[in-house]
Structures are given as C-alpha cells and as structure tokens.
Design a binder for these strands. Sequence first.
DNA 1: CTAATCTGTAATGTTTATTATCACAGTACA
DNA 2: TGTACTGTGATAATAAACATTACAGATTAG
Lengths: 137, 137
Amino acid sequence: MNSDFTLAIHSLTLLALQPDRMATSDIISESAGVHPVRIRKVLSLLKKHGFIKTKEGTGGGFIFASELSEVNLWDIYKITSEGALQPKCPDSNEKCIVGANMQKVLFSIFLGAEEHLGEYLKNYTIKEVVHHINLEK
Amino acid sequence: MNSDFTLAIHSLTLLALQPDRMATSDIISESAGVHPVRIRKVLSLLKKHGFIKTKEGTGGGFIFASELSEVNLWDIYKITSEGALQPKCPDSNEKCIVGANMQKVLFSIFLGAEEHLGEYLKNYTIKEVVHHINLEK
DNA sequence: CTAATCTGTAATGTTTATTATCACAGTACA
DNA sequence: TGTACTGTGATAATAAACATTACAGATTAG
C-alpha cells in the first residue's frame, strides 16, 4: 500500500484545524514531509468527492468543505487505496489444482477482509482524528 | 505488503492436499510461480512455528505437521506480515501540531485495524481454503 | 564413502512500485 | 500584466520486492 491514504488523512486533519482559511499545497507538504505535487494529486481526488474545495490563484489553496464528523476513514480509504489489501499474485501454474485456483480463492478472502476493515474504518471520522491530535498536544 | 502471506497460504494448501508425502521447494515454486529460494525462506518461518516439518537430503522437502482446521490465516499473517498494514510515514514536521502527532495517532488506528482484521482472518483455516480450492475444480 | 538431492541462508543483481522533481497550462487576484 | 496558486503529464530518483547465484550442511542411494 502506498501512503496516499495516510497523506489524505493528514491533509484533511490539517484543513480541519483551520476551517476559516485556505492552506496551500506548500504548507501542507511541509507539515506532512512530502512533495507539494503529491499533495495536490491526492487532494484533487478528495475534491472530486466533495470533501474539500480548492481555489487557484493568489490566496488560493485547499479548504474543508464538509462536516468533520461526516468524513470517515473508510470513505477516504476507498478513494485513495481501494483494493490495496489485495495481493498481487504471480501467474501460478494452471496445470496444478492449487495454482490454478488459488488466485480466485485468495481474491474472495481479501475482498471479505477489505469489507471487514471497512467496518472498522467507518467508526473513525476526521473529527475523532482531530480530537486525538489535540489530546497529544 | 509483500506476498509472503499469500505464498504461505498457497504452500500450506498444497501440502495439505498431499499429507502423505513431502513436497520439494521446486515443486511448490512451480505451482506458485515464484523462485524456489523464496519458498524455502517463507516455509522456514512456518517451520519455526511448528506448522510444517522439513527434511533435508534426497527424498526430503516439506510436509504438513498439524491439523488443517487448527491453522488459521491470522496465525499465518502474524508470522509472515505482522505490521504490514502500518503505513510508513515520512518524517513530518515536528513544529506543526499535525505533523508532530499524526504518526502516533495513525499508528494507534492501524494497530486497531490490524487487530480487527485478525478477527476476520481467524475465521479462515487452511481446511476452509482447501475446501474452496476443491469446489473450484 | 561418494555422488546426488535436498534444505538453509547470505550476498548480490534485477525488476517493479513509490515518490520526487520538472515543466507548463489554466485560474484568480492585485 | 505579473505573481501566486492549482492541475496534470512526463521523467528521474529512490526504495521495496523479488530473483538469482553460491555454497554450507543434512540425508540418502548406490
């Protein structure tokens, strides 16, 4: 799994903490320790799903566009990383009962695993993450 | 996540289907489509935990050493891939409230996620996987 | 007892995935 | 009209996964 999921959470949390003004990709990238272009790419996904708004030009940037308690981590996972749990099986031997069928068996197991993970992630919203961040202060 | 987890499942399933005789790393690697050395590395982990037995020399190889229904996928996950869910966060900015604390917040979330995944994986044993493989025939 | 056939494992090379960087078009504002 | 942003494609650098080589140690067959 790449870190788009955690980058998205990081960015949203930062935006949640300054709901009144926009944050640029430079500011967010400095907080997250990654390149600003990556921030723009990940956040453009979140924009497409309406979680944030963006503005180009001077004074522009990114800003939260929904209720903190309505954005849960499962939503974000699906947008950034759906299918990431799924293992990339090498082409196994079709002549072997196991090789020929293992891939689809594993596929169904991991599909179930991802759904199960979803049940857990649905319980976490950005509001909770922000709360945890504040507790750590 | 690398594919050690699925390789282990694949190998155990193959061994489960021929409980009477040993399988060499060459045979298993041919079924799984990977290099025999990888099979030996992954299976040596399973051996350490007593799930299989090995024998060196002519006629040697790997063989199942426990009850199919007592080897569940969570056991195997823990052996091969524990912590794999955990995202590798880049060093974020310590001067930023979010950057400074996000890592430990994410850590606790992903720890919970892995435990939750465990509850799902515990329900799958090699016996079930073998059963699914046979159904696909 | 010697050659053949295995596992065990370290070391190294190759490939693939992830991430960073560059380049530049488009938008908004002063 | 210049400056400060996002949006996005293309390419380069880095890191992770995987394959390959090499060889020591165990076991068996002849």
